[in-house]
Simulated assay, not measured.
Amino acid sequence: MLSRPRRNRQSAAIRAQIRETELTPGHLVQPIFLMPEPNARLPIVSLPGTFRLGIEEVVREVGECRKLGIYSFIMFPAVPEEHKDKTGTYATSEENFYLHAATRLKTEYPDICLISDVALDPYSTDGHDGLVVNGKIDNDQTLPLVDAMAVAQARAGFDVIGPSEMMDGRIESIRRALDKEGFTDTSIMSYCAKYASAFYGPFRDALDSAPRQLEDVPTDKKTYQMDPANRKEALREAALDAAEGADYLMVKPAINYLDIIRELTNEHHLPIAAYHVSGECAMLLAAAERGWLDYQTAASEALLSIRRAGASVIISYFAKDFATWYGQ
């Protein structure tokens, strides 16, 4: 037998020499759930180890992550019910705690990359990512609202704008709005392949952003998020968003869509981001709590698989823990 692949697996030193995929804390993005109360720290029951935080706790958390080598963060607002309305007007309000928090973080830590979320659902009484008109999510009436939201976020200090609402034409519309206001250096991370997944539950618990049970309003997001059965559609969405000016292309969720990450990596020269979503993480955590899996080993393998599929950027609730283990 002339060829024995096992020869290159005989020691840690040899395995390190030929390792094809590297994952470091620099590839990871830590999600943040922000609350208006400055010192809040409330656990998310359906996602153990993750918290809703006030800005003072966020400042401390970001400082700890930086020491571990994580410099990228994506932040989501847990908006109180009294600030929600049909058109999400609080998203651009000068009183919006989310915008104030972004300014504070970029003042405290100018070297971090801060990514926003652009969608109506945190601010809407309907719980949908787009504007509901006559029982339907109206694509074109949503665009001016997300344009204004993106500009307000760029003005607050966000480095990367993250349109997640899956409206057609949003990337071009937001790019024009940002450029018109002088934010030509602000990047756009497009959720180009965001699937109508069953794995978003803990995230929606954290933000109370699930579609509401209202008369004549859809109770799911299947009319704008993608069908999990479709692959070619993801290629089309990515091509459209790239042509419209996206700076990153995102696949969400990640683990169940590794084939889509690989397809986009092969097709595009833009960085590919992957969102390792709350349900994917919660599932692994639940198994680890029962002793069925080793948390560190399984979480590290999950993140490595996303990186191996081609993701340049990985958003994950395991980011901080992985950075703690890294290099041990």
Rank of each mutant, 00 (worst) to 15 (best):
M1W: 11
M1R: 14
Q10P: 00
A13C: 03
A16I: 06
E20K: 14
G26Y: 09
L28W: 00
Q30V: 00
R41K: 14
L42N: 11
P43A: 14
I44V: 13
I44C: 11
L53Q: 13
I55G: 00
E56M: 00
E57V: 01
V59W: 01
V59D: 01
V62Q: 00
G63T: 01
G63S: 09
Y71V: 02
F76M: 08
P77W: 04
V79S: 12
G88I: 11
T89E: 15
Y90T: 04
A102N: 00
Y109H: 07
P110F: 08
D111N: 12
L114I: 06
S116T: 13
A119C: 14
Y123F: 15
Y123H: 14
G135D: 11
D138S: 15
V146H: 09
A148L: 10
A148V: 05
D159L: 08
V160A: 12
G162D: 04
P163G: 03
S173C: 03
R175I: 04
R175P: 02
E181W: 02
G182L: 11
G182R: 09
G182Y: 08
F183W: 10
I188S: 10
M189A: 13
Y191I: 06
Y191T: 08
Y195N: 05
A198V: 13
F199P: 01
S209G: 15
Q213C: 13
Q213A: 15
E215V: 10
P218A: 11
Y224M: 06
Q225D: 01
M226K: 03
E233P: 01
A242D: 07
E244A: 15
G245Q: 03
D247Q: 08
Y248A: 03
M250C: 13
M250I: 08
A254L: 04
R262N: 09
R262S: 05
L270T: 04
L270F: 02
V277R: 02
C281V: 15
A282W: 02
G291R: 13
L293I: 13
Y295I: 03
Q296S: 11
A298K: 01
A302F: 01
L303K: 07
L304Y: 05
I306G: 00
S312I: 06
W325C: 05
